[in-house]
């Protein structure tokens, strides 16, 4: 029975990884992110789904707009992430100054990085919104966690939301993977304040059926 459970757990983890890889490889994607103090809602229009995170209540609400259903999850603790390869990279950071992006003031940086032990080089251009966010909110909104304090990445404004990020990663010419490369673009905009009426965004939609 234990072996069977372990196998099911392995299958679940593997499926999680596959879903993650699929989501990373799906392209392109558009999402809407709403932040309400410590709560975060992420809408996926392509999937007709949304997730509301309420970490102070240890509660997550998953909404399926296709079937007009929602599910409330309680007690889902933070999982242990695998080692963060990016944190161990050697980086060079250059300040690009300030510019206006979609009506917002943003501070830019160019980051050149070399993976340790892997013949790959990455160059990123990032512009951060000039407004600090609480660490937990930022992590929920971006679904990424920061590197530990003291890493080379801490030269960047770790408490701010990147509005623009272009990262080009390619294998070094001398490596067996020479010729491999990928460029990803992440852009954020339409930034605006929510008002009191928008609080309803963080509750299950009226008329939707709750499923267990």
């Amino acid at each position: 029975m234990q072996a069977q459970n372990a196998q099911m757990q392995r299958q679940g983890v593997a499926l999680d990884q596959r879903i993650m890889m699929q989501s990373l490889n799906s392209q392109p994607s558009v999402q809407r992110v709403s932040i309400w103090d410590g709560w975060v809602r992420i809408d996926n229009p392509a999937d007709h789904t949304a997730i509301i995170y309420k970490p102070d209540q240890n509660e997550y609400i998953a909404i399926d707009d296709t079937r007009k259903q929602y599910r409330v999850l309680h007690g889902a603790g933070a999982p242990q992430p695998p080692p963060n390869m990016a944190c161990n990279m050697a980086v060079t950071v250059n300040n690009l100054g300030t510019r206006q992006i979609d009506g917002q003031t943003a501070h830019g940086f160019r980051i050149d990085s070399q993976m340790q032990g892997v013949p790959m080089t990455s160059t990123s251009t990032m512009y951060f919104l000039d407004q600090p966010l609480p660490a937990q909110t930022l992590e929920l909104a971006t679904q990424y966690a920061p590197c530990p304090a003291g890493s080379a990445w801490s030269q960047l404004p770790v408490d701010k939301l990147p509005l623009y990020q272009v990262s080009a990663t390619h294998a070094d010419a001398s490596s067996p993977m020479a010729g491999f490369g990928v460029t990803s673009v992440l852009m954020r905009g339409n930034v605006h304040a929510l008002n009191d009426a928008d609080g309803a965004l963080f509750e299950p939609p009226a008329g939707y059926q709750q499923v267990q």
């Binding site: 999680d16 990884q17 993650m20 890889m21 989501s23 990373l24 997730i51 995170y53 933070a78 999982p79 992430p81 695998p82 080692p83 963060n84 390869m85 990016a86 944190c87 990279m89 980051i111 990085s113 993976m115 790959m120 990455s122 990123s124 990032m126 930022l138 992590e139 929920l140 909104a141 971006t142 679904q143 990424y144 966690a145 920061p146 590197c147 890493s151 990445w153 960047l156 770790v158 939301l161 990147p162 990020q165 990262s167 080009a168 990663t169 990928v182 460029t183 990803s184 992440l186 954020r188």
Partner: peptide
């Protein structure tokens, strides 16, 4: 994922989309 997350997550300070997982 670690490599891709570097370029995709909205932050280079990232490992995996924790809550997504």
């Amino acid at each position: 994922l670690g490599i891709a997350g570097m370029g995709l997550g909205g932050s280079p300070l990232s490992h995996v989309p924790v809550l997504g997982k």
